[in-house]
């Protein structure tokens, strides 16, 4: 299994991966509470970025409404817990199922009526906004005043109810991100991944080759939606509160895709790298500007980063770094 996951990675890449894994595993023992929060949030955004990357990076489907899947995951698992005491470890299944269903609905409408490119992105925005307003008026889950998960004793780690110490949430986020990395790797190496890449590069050629484009695209949307909603379940029990105005907001949809864009669209490591650049950067900026209370500075720098990447390094940071460190496969080794 591990052999298959590492696949053609060269020796240097294996060593780098091992080192990164070691640092991430040991991190909670070395950092203080504040840094642990930053790392947990970086991993959380890495995971969301990885989930989004399945759609855009692999299959070339631009979604600007991914916040709706985060929100659906958070609200389903959160509401089932608050109203029926259903532990999130079970609640995550209906949460993922609902997100997958909504993803399937968007995919079905989008692909059956061949809504492409920017129009498809607008369709995802329209759905996300529609659902946001719906939840704003959905009083069973608190409407616009939000849904709160009761905070209780956090000294004992309880994975079933997702109650526990910051360390538990850190390892949980790490686990999610590693699992998403492994899944992405397996998918890309498999048939489905190759179909996606073919569609991303040239849909008509892919169709001519006999690829069932509709099914492959549906698989990407459904999978990406379900993965993202799992991140939403984490969101609900990590932050313990959710408001439609925040969790379904288009700003979250955009924030979660900045990581993959900056790290490297369609790459495996890119979304993780991007999140680990952006989240600490934003924390640093808030710390630096604390005295001047410049509320917009974080987003200004976010925007600037994206503009610079789009104009000067459209492939993202990871391919550039990997080439310089010799972590990508040496050209022409034939595998």
């Amino acid at each position: 299994m591990i052999g298959r996951l590492l696949g053609e990675a060269g020796t240097r890449a294996r060593i780098a991966l091992g080192l990164a894994a070691l640092v991430l595993l040991a991190a909670p023992a070395m950092v203080d509470d504040y840094l642990l929060t930053v790392l947990t949030q970086s991993l959380f955004f890495a995971y969301l970025g990885q989930s989004w990357n399945v759609m855009m990076g692999f299959a070339g489907l631009l979604s600007l409404g991914h916040a709706m899947f985060v929100g659906l995951g958070a609200y389903v698992a959160g509401a089932l817990f608050v109203h029926f005491g259903l532990p999130p470890v079970i609640g995550l299944f209906p949460a993922m199922a609902l997100a997958a269903l909504v993803g399937a609905a968007i995919g079905f409408l989008g692909f059956r009526f061949s809504i492409q490119g920017v129009y498809f992105a607008l369709l995802t925005i329209a759905f996300a906004e529609f659902i946001r307003i719906l939840f704003d008026h959905f009083t069973w889950v608190g409407g616009s005043s939000g849904l709160f998960i009761p905070v209780d004793n956090r000294t004992v780690n309880d994975l079933v109810h997702l109650r526990g110490t910051p360390e538990m949430f850190y390892y949980l986020a790490l686990g999610l991100s590693v699992a998403a990395l492994a899944l992405s790797r397996l998918l890309l190496a498999g048939r489905l991944g190759h179909r996606w890449l073919a569609i991303r590069e040239d849909q008509e050629a892919a169709q001519a080759l006999g690829i069932d484009v509709f099914r492959a695209k549906m698989a990407a949307v459904v999978l990406s939606a379900a993965m993202t909603s799992l991140g939403g379940v984490f969101y609900a029990f990590y932050f313990n509160n959710m408001f439609p105005e925040q969790i379904f907001n288009i700003n979250l949809s955009i924030e979660l895709l900045l990581g993959p864009i900056i790290g490297g669209l369609g790459t495996l490591i890119g979304p993780i790298l991007g999140a680990f650049v952006l989240t600490p950067l934003s924390e640093l900026l808030s710390a630096l500007t604390e005295r001047h209370a410049l509320i917009g500075i974080k987003h200004f720098v976010y925007g600037l980063c994206v503009v610079l990447i789009v104009v000067f390094l459209p492939g993202g940071l990871w391919p550039w770094i990997a080439r310089r460190l010799g972590l990508d496969r040496p050209p022409g080794d034939g595998t």
Partner: peptide
């Protein structure tokens, strides 16, 4: 001549910057 989504992202990034400027 960049792919459609890159143009879209450029404009989205500019949008984020403009809102941030207005906020500041």
């Amino acid at each position: 001549h960049a792919p459609e989504h890159m143009q879209f992202l450029l404009m989205a990034a500019l949008a984020i910057m403009l809102v941030a400027l207005c906020l500041m």
